[in-house]
Design a protein around this nucleic acid. Structure first.
Lengths: 268, 268
DNA sequence: CCTTCCAAG
DNA sequence: CTTGTAAGG
């Protein structure tokens, strides 16, 4: 069994003050992918930076207090890679990849964008550079007999079932037609699988992010933007997937909730 | 009797969340002078901006979130004046004056300075402009049969007894020779009286400010920089003066403590 | 160390 | 609404 959890921590230092460590201690995951760490390694409290029993690797952004991804693994990775070969994005704390026996796991934090602004252009540039990388990653992995899962905050909802207020958000970043189409190409062209949706084809959500504004969380006005996007060989072995909403995760140490998938693989 | 309290609130919005209103409700003062309000009037919660039974007047700084002084009076002032006729400082939220029957009360927030920097030059420019104003204020008040008290955060200690660590602070802003000498001129040349010191000539302190850093408050490593500086006719009528340190003011909703003087005057 | 600001989300 | 940063104190 390989259990993988992905969560956008919205500032690991803030999360550390609100219960990240007890949550991690209670986690059964073999791999935890973090996004929006928003800190350099030295700024992170030691018990969070190097918790007992975990190997941790961080890819902070060059800009202080921004983005930043990390991977926590129970076994030491065979190989670690920061970025995906993009001059613009490799120092932006948005992509970190590690090889474990038979599987490559990545932590991705795709830019959130803002419709009609330069931020949205940046998001599109990231998407444009990242899709070919995903294609090549899958090809190299196949040649190597490996599987791949790219976990993280993709900041895009593919379908209406992926966000509660899809009608009012058709012109919002995260649910723009161009973004939805691009995510469709990750599945149809690059051949990856949205694992949680594959296991829960007929549910609304499960959402993984609720804005701190208004009563979004209480009203479950959420978005399913935190995904595990895997090669079909791995996705086919997914046996269970869930999002830790309030019931199981009442501390709410982030505006995102952890997304966990159990894959029927030998332990890595 | 006229009871006057002066306190640097270090952000009235923060103070409001930590107990300013109950403190004010329990105050016997007729006049409360505030410094470092750090807000525009509209940003202040209504119960703090216009508390039942008080007239309030604010002099915010042009720069958002900086400085700002206020006067709370039980009777409506006969006249209010923002600034002291200085092009450089009148919009800096550092001086506010009000006439009550027979007495002029001012709230002053003198720049804190920083030794060897432009901030210190600004402090000296303020001091240079303010001393002649104090002289004129006293003369006009005398011609008018009025008394004067200038309350506030003067950001200067006059004597060694005014700060616990005077030895280590001889090169620190607030206890520089030039600053001490200037405050001496407020007393000796302009003819004002440091009311709390006059009533407590032989005590260390009483301090009114303790840095939030380290254990300054617990160690009582304080500075007596919050003063009531009055004309002799008023100072002579001071019957009681105290600083509300932890015992009487345990909430600590500011890094400064309120300084109160009771003057033996008819109620204003 | 604390309180504002601002940019970002 | 919350996280960081930075300046100011």
């Amino acid at each position: 069994m390989l259990t993988v959890t992905s969560v956008n921590v919205n500032g690991i230092r803030a999360a550390a003050k609100k219960g990240f460590s007890p949550w991690l201690a209670g986690s059964d995951a073999d791999v935890v992918c973090l996004q929006e760490v928003r800190a350099e390694e030295e700024q992170i409290p030691l018990e969070v930076r190097k918790p007992e029993g975990w190997h941790t690797v961080f890819a902070p952004a060059a800009a202080k207090g921004r983005a930043g991804v990390a991977l926590y693994t129970r076994r030491e990775p065979e190989r670690v890679q920061v970025g995906f070969g993009s001059a613009e994005f490799d120092a932006s704390g948005r992509y970190l990849e590690a090889d474990l026996p038979g599987v490559t796991v990545a932590s991705l934090y795709l830019p959130s964008g803002e419709a009609g602004t330069e931020k949205q252009d940046e998001k599109y540039r990231f998407m444009e550079a990242f899709l070919p990388y995903l294609v090549g990653l899958k090809e190299r992995a196949a040649a190597d007999g490996r599987e791949v899962v790219v976990c993280g905050d993709w900041n895009i909802c593919h379908r209406e079932a992926d966000l509660k207020n899809w009608r009012t958000n058709r012109k919002s970043a995260g649910f723009l037609p161009e973004e939805r189409e691009w995510l469709g190409r990750v599945y149809a062209e690059a051949g990856y699988v949205d694992v949680v949706r594959a296991l829960h084809p007929d549910t609304e959500g499960p959402y993984s992010w609720w804005s701190y504004r208004g009563r979004a969380f209480d009203n479950d006005a959420g978005w399913r933007i935190d995904l595990q996007v895997a090669t079909p060989g791995l996705a086919d072995r997914a046996v269970k997937a869930w999002v830790e909403r309030a019931e199981t995760h009442p501390e709410r140490w982030s505006d995102h909730a952890p997304v966990t998938v159990v894959y029927g693989l030998g332990a890595v």
